[in-house]
């Protein structure tokens, strides 16, 4: 019994960090209808930023986190301004935004790899160790990450449902064009949305860097977050959270009770099956994600 509970705790802690990114995917998808492929680069840049802020410039931890956030937001806004906005203005098919994001991601990740090399960089130990609760170990860093994820999500929810900007975002998710006709400033809204996704990527970058060390291919994990967002129903924030926790637990249980080498197979098979059989995911909107190119 303890072992199952321990695996559940591990799974939830993995899922909580997926959730940070999955919400970012869901947010961008619900408004702009494309999978934002550049989260990978945002996350890795933020992780590198935090690492060098700590090790090279000897900044305190809070300053390093701020540096990571600044990098995440800055890059996200740059991409919005230079890679997505011109396409949107032209009314290009949404899949071209995906290609643009993919291209930017490919270039940035490999640029980081060339500039810094593939070696691993470890963060100075922070919040290492764990609490023992009834024979179950709960990692301190994991607990902090989960708490952070929940706080950010709660904050995001508050922003969406209790502020004017949030109203604009929600209106845009229903009908982008009508919302802009009704006076929502599209460009300001886009900066806000991509800024939020930069914050989410920045925080996850720091958390991942601390958990697994910093290296250029750290961002491969963003694929998992995308799967989580799809499982939850692309475009739904609650769905993204639920999908992330489910995926984290699924992965842990497959690793533990089937074989760890089948873990990713299950994750990607879940992605394909959900999309084919159940394209709206668990909590997705009724309407299908995209009905044209």
């Amino acid at each position: 019994m303890t072992i199952i509970l321990q695996q559940l705790v591990s799974g939830l802690s993995i899922g909580a960090v997926y959730a940070l990114l999955a919400v970012g995917y869901a947010l961008v998808y619900s408004i702009y209808g494309f999978t934002n492929w550049s989260f990978d680069a945002l996350l890795v840049s933020a992780a590198f930023g935090a690492y060098y802020a700590l090790s090279l410039f000897k900044l305190p931890l809070w300053a390093a986190v701020l540096a990571a956030l600044a990098l995440g937001i800055g890059l996200a806004l740059m991409l919005e301004l230079f890679a997505y906005r011109p396409l949107r203005r032209r009314g290009a098919p949404r899949v071209l935004m995906l290609i643009s994001a993919m291209g930017a991601n490919l270039a940035l990740i490999n640029l980081i790899n060339l500039a810094f090399g593939g070696a691993l960089r470890a963060f100075p130990p922070f919040l290492s160790g764990s609490w023992q609760v009834a024979g179950i170990a709960i990692g301190r860093l994991d607990a902090l990450a989960a708490l952070l994820a929940l706080l950010l999500l709660a904050g995001l929810r508050w922003l969406l449902y209790h502020t004017r900007a949030g109203l604009g975002i929600r209106a845009s998710t229903m009908d982008f064009t009508t919302a802009s006709l009704m006076g929502v400033d599209n460009n300001a809204l886009a900066l806000l949305v991509f800024g939020i996704s930069g914050v989410l990527a920045g925080v996850s970058g720091v958390v991942y860097g601390m958990k697994y060390a910093v290296y250029p291919y750290l961002g491969l994990v963003t694929l998992k977050a995308m799967i989580a967002a799809v499982i939850g129903g692309l475009g739904s924030l609650e769905g993204a959270l639920l999908g992330s926790l489910l995926l984290g637990v699924l992965e842990t249980f497959v690793s533990a009770f089937i074989s760890s080498t089948y873990r990713d197979l299950f994750s990607f098979a879940a992605l394909v099956l959900i999309l084919l059989i159940f394209p709206n995911g668990l909590l997705g909107a009724r309407r299908p994600p995209i009905l044209e190119g």
Binding site: T35, M226, D264, F268, V272, L275, I290, G293
Partner: peptide, 17 residues
């Protein structure tokens, strides 16, 4: 009749599987 992004992600999943 789901295309665009959706088809790209399905094929991605398939390739990885």
């Amino acid at each position: 009749r789901l295309r665009g992004d959706y088809f790209a992600v399905v094929t991605l999943g398939f390739g990885e599987v």
